[in-house]
Design a protein around this nucleic acid. Sequence first.
RNA 1: GGGGCGGUAGUUCAGUUGGUUUAGAAUUCCGGCCUGUCAAGCCGGGGGUCGCGGGUUCAAGUCCCGUCCGUCCCGCCA
Length: 600
Amino acid sequence: MRTHQCACLCEADIGQDVALAGWMNSRRDHGGVIFIDLRDSSGIVQIVINPDQSESFSRAEQARNEFVLRVTGQVRLRPDGTENPGLSTGTIEVVADQLTILTRTEHLPFQIDDEDVNETLRLKHRYLDLRRTRMQRNLRLRHSLVRTIRHFLEARDFTEIETPMLTRSTPEGARDYLVPSRVHTGAFYAMPQSPQMFKQILVISGFERYYQIARCFRDEDLRADRQPEFTQLDLEMAFVEEADIMQLMEALFKLAFSELGDIKLPDTFPVLSYREAMKRYGTDRPDLRIALELVDLTDAMKDEEFQVFRRAANRKDGRVAALRVPDGAALTRQKIDAYTEFVGNYGAKGLAYIKVNSTAAGREGLQSPIVKFLSDAAIDSIIQLSNCQPGDIVFFGADAASTVNASLGALRNQLGADLGLVEEGWQPVWVVDFPLVEYDQESNRWQALHHPFTAPKEDALDEIQSDPGSVLSRAYDLVLNGVEIGGGSIRNHRLDVQRQIFRMLGLSEDSIDEKFGFLLTALSCGAPPHGGIAFGIDRIAALLAGESSIRDVIAFPKTQRAYCPLTDAPNAIATEQLNELELRVKTTASIMNAPVSENP
RNA sequence: GGGGCGGUAGUUCAGUUGGUUUAGAAUUCCGGCCUGUCAAGCCGGGGGUCGCGGGUUCAAGUCCCGUCCGUCCCGCCA
């Protein structure tokens, strides 16, 4: 079929007879001579067809973009002055002596060199979309990432082991994707949200170093960085502590980013406690490229007369905080209003601000609707603690700490983007010392922050029953440029501790044994101390590719309604299939909620 | 479940306070010319359920209501 790939030809091949095959990227028909850019997976080379090859010439006249062609001819140097420096093969061309059309195209739904095509259309005709340079590059980059990871772990004696895709539904965590069992009528498998329990059992089984590039499934609403099925690097190790895993993963990321993006990550990644991250950035996944930080004013505002601040400062779960933006006084009223609306998305009831004209003149130097409500002492505190300078603006949040953190944390990111305060580069950070559990008002019980197998700090065992909220866990998250790319923990290898935690989470003895009995029994048979971590391959690939959505590093992703425009999944199924499973679809659900498979 | 933005030739878009022609442009497509282009160029032609359904109006791509789809975000995601 072919002797060479298009872009593998170079000046050393001049004079050679070659055979090429590929897609017609573009055609320039001068009447007397036709140029064709022929594309294969290696790239593009220019074909020249002269009228003396009359049959091939007339076929070339018919050819259209994305026709599949085979060309034989000779490689030659391009005539002086006709080189194309924009092409890697721009100094040569192939003079065709025969051109055949292997496949014609019907009307193309879109041009593949069109950068801005409706995404649903791209997904519906993904075979065309994936031909584009950008998508070819993204998927090859993703492949290289996985290859690098495998190499790295193989060299360190990890064993890749597959775990079941049909497993059991667990009560904690995300909504499961369910698969009905035919053999066990009325019972369901669940698709794994992660291989968590299996990997612990593998380590208990004596595979001291396990890993897997694992597909995971969560039936929750989608985001730019969340798909219903996604890929994790999942790993687990016996006889380790936090530092062992963190150091190994730092080595892996330093290698991968240097190999794949020529990016040098810091020798040692900084570490932040959860508490400090929330205090300074309002989030447990701070983007350290943005120099802005929250300043806590809760203590300073406890006795303040200004109700909004005083009430928030004195409530048990309250917080008053400030976000100073250097040179932000130039923000217009209109923009401030837009930011007020923005923080409203996160539950903030308003967005107080002070524009700083001078710091020496006390209240006279400040310009703000709230200054008149503030005492001199409060104004001094604000100036001192925020360290504001003339020309700055200081934003305030005063509410439940969770609201203040969410709104000012999001505002910090938004201002960073809007004002160009995001530094170039790559800033990883470990976040550690998470609370083991948090209280869920809705279900009226404690819930694991990571998952219920996470070990508590060793010195906190006594508080698990007495004061669960104060217990810290042995969990760690890795955050890169504000993206949570992975997380893990040291696990409970002691049966009694694990039982105690289940109990604290409100599970009855019966329910513990029914749902987690197999794991507890395994723990009772000689479980080594162990821990692990999991990384979002899609998110890491998107970061490396410079894409803002993981859909652009997934070959066949779903839309925000979890729909696949290519295959029209999910779809209604035949009554016979339902009968075989002894299932019946509620009439209100059947047709009404089936996805509409019409063109966008 | 909630909020923002969007949906007009195959594609990407424009379309003003509701009314100038038959809803435009570029590109794709079709035909013609053209021997050094590389987004080739020049001439001509075809191509529209203005997402869908109601409503207001003498008149709706434009205003109102509903709905569907896409996207970003909140909730949700142990």
